[in-house]
Design a protein around this nucleic acid. Sequence first.
DNA 1: CACTTGACCTGTCCGC
DNA 2: TGCGGACAGGTCAAGT
Length: 290
Amino acid sequence: MPELPEVETVRRGLQRLIVGKTVASARAIDSPKSFPNSDDDVSAFLVGATILAVRRRAKVLLVDLSSDYTLVIHLKMTGQLVYVGDRRFGAGHPNDSLIGKLPDRSTRVVIEFTDDSHLYFNDQRKFGWVKLYPTAEVTNIDFMKRVGPEPLENTFTSKQFIQHIRRRNGTTIKAAILDQTVLAGVGNIYADESLWGARIHPATRVRDVSDEQLSTLLDEIKYVMNLSIEKGGSTDKNYVDAEGKRGSYIDFARVFRREGLACPRHPDVLIEKSRVAGRGTHTCPVCQVQ
DNA sequence: CACTTGACCTGTCCGC
DNA sequence: TGCGGACAGGTCAAGT
């Protein structure tokens, strides 16, 4: 679920909520992929450190610490990072309603700050993780070395996008835009939404998509991602932001999870669901002809 | 090598 | 009502 817009929404919330706070304790609960280094390492480089900044690269969150270490966090499908309880906000703040509700049985990592507030990493399906790396080594992580350009960076051009994606001429256009080495941050929701926007069938081979269509597709990817960030992301089931709040992009979706409903361009045509690149795929049979 | 499929997990929903 | 199976979807490993 969490794709670029959801992770960016969480990043903005955390940047506002936890920068300047000092870690009092940290522990992982039933999350073997989190803190795989020893407990000693966690306490040495995490406890006592102050949060300097919260960055994002692709779908990965990077929490920089004053110890020159960085928390590297991937939410995968059902991960949440929820911040609770800050005396700075006083009673009535949205966070207050979460006090006492967390931790719950999906809580995998708890980070306690010196002001008694907490950051909870919850993950129903245990695919996500929280790891600690020296800040200088983050760029050497395999994923970081391989991941493609950020679609919302204004230095990124359609010419570069076309060059990158042509390396995947033999596969389907949906598989290609889901490939994080081609482009960072696209997942199943925004793949379907942008392909509908560009009137391209997801199962079309990349080689059969023209440069002009690819340029349109990149514009649509940027459009749906910017709109979603504005709406606080997409909440289907699990996703919430750093304050535990749901996102509303799904209310604006044109095809995603809309099978059997009318295509926004064709009142008499129903959205269909199929399988492309191993994923549930939503299309309009009139807009998107293979 | 290029591409596709399965595994990792748990909760939910559907059909029998 | 209970139960088995399909499905959800990000990424990597294994298979074709």
